[in-house]
Computed example of a mutant assay.
Amino acid sequence: MFALTSADFAAEQIICEAIATIYTNHGILSEESTDGVWTKDIFEGPLWIIDPLDGTVNYVRCLPHFAISMAIAVDGVVWVGNVHAPDLGVTYVGVRGGGARCNNEQIHVHRFETLSEAVIGTGFSHDKEKVHPALARVNLLTTHCRDLRRLVAPTIDMCYVASGRLDAHTESLAPWDVAASGLIAREAGAITGHVGSVPANIPLELCGEEIVCANPGIFDELLSLLRSRN
């Protein structure tokens, strides 16, 4: 793990204890207490997927783009997701089949048809050995879209796609990055997919590897572009 703080662990403890007290038979998958090794049985039954502090470096540096992300899934299907960004004063909620909201106001993607005019969010792995593929992705995107943003909190970035502030977001992520924000984005009208194949041991909605989250107008073109470098 990178740049973990006492706040990461304190937030995780508070959230996990609250869940365990009420939902005694539910599983919990939280970023700070997992080894990142996935087996299919982990995702069986009711499971809470939590990122207690997404954007830790931003939090440490007093930058506002950090969030708490929580989702509940059953057998790998996400039913409710919540992303709360306290310094930004926003709370995003998505309910399967019930739409997406920001501060209780319904939100929708910005229907944008031209990739060359799109503003896209992306990010880099903290593992320096994995930086080069991300840089290749950046080089490709900068020549085909209007501009890029790196806010270092992908849960917020995908919610920004949901609310039309960004047109797309793409990078390699973990289940706790995409569980809540992916549902919120899809309920707001976005499409999510993957550049490569999804491993058999991870449910589709919880796979963050090479994820693409975009409004429908540019999704196909963006996915084709990203696959062209493979």
Rank of each mutant, 00 (worst) to 15 (best):
H110K: 10
V83A: 04
A18D: 05
L63D: 09
G123L: 01
K130D: 08
A134C: 15
N82E: 12
W38R: 02
G99S: 09
H126K: 05
P64K: 14
L47K: 05
V83L: 08
P52E: 01
I22P: 02
F43W: 08
G81K: 03
R101M: 11
A71W: 02
E113H: 05
V57N: 07
V95G: 12
I72E: 04
D35S: 08
G97L: 11
W38P: 02
Y92D: 10
D87A: 15
R96K: 14
H26P: 01
A20C: 14
T24S: 12
V90F: 07
S33T: 07
S116F: 09
D75V: 13
V80C: 09
W48A: 04
S116M: 06
F124S: 06
R96G: 03
I28F: 03
T21D: 15
H108Y: 11
A134T: 05
I72S: 02
H126R: 10
Q106A: 10
S116P: 03
I42K: 10
I50L: 07
V80Y: 10
L88H: 10
S30M: 09
A20K: 08
A100P: 08
F66T: 01
N104H: 07
F66V: 01
E105T: 05
T114G: 08
M70A: 12
F112G: 11
D87Q: 10
P64V: 03
L135Q: 08
N82I: 12
H84S: 07
V119T: 08
V90G: 03
I49W: 04
G27V: 14
Q13W: 13
I15N: 03
G81S: 07
A73F: 15
E117N: 11
T34F: 04
V77Y: 04
V80T: 12
P46N: 14
V90I: 13
T39K: 15
C62N: 13
Y23W: 15
E129H: 07
G55L: 02
Y59Q: 04
R61L: 07
Y92R: 10
V83W: 00
Q106F: 13
N82F: 04
E31M: 01
Q106D: 14
I19S: 07
G89E: 09
E129Q: 11
S116H: 13
I68H: 01
P52T: 03
G76H: 01
H26C: 11
I22H: 14
V78K: 05
C102G: 03
L135I: 11
E12R: 05
G81V: 04
H110Y: 14
A67Y: 00
T114V: 13
A118F: 10
G27Q: 12
G55K: 01
Q106H: 05
E32W: 00
E12S: 13
D54P: 00
G97E: 09
P133H: 06
T24N: 07
I22L: 12
D87M: 14
V119G: 05
E17R: 11
D54Q: 02
K128R: 08
T114S: 10
C16Y: 02
T24E: 14
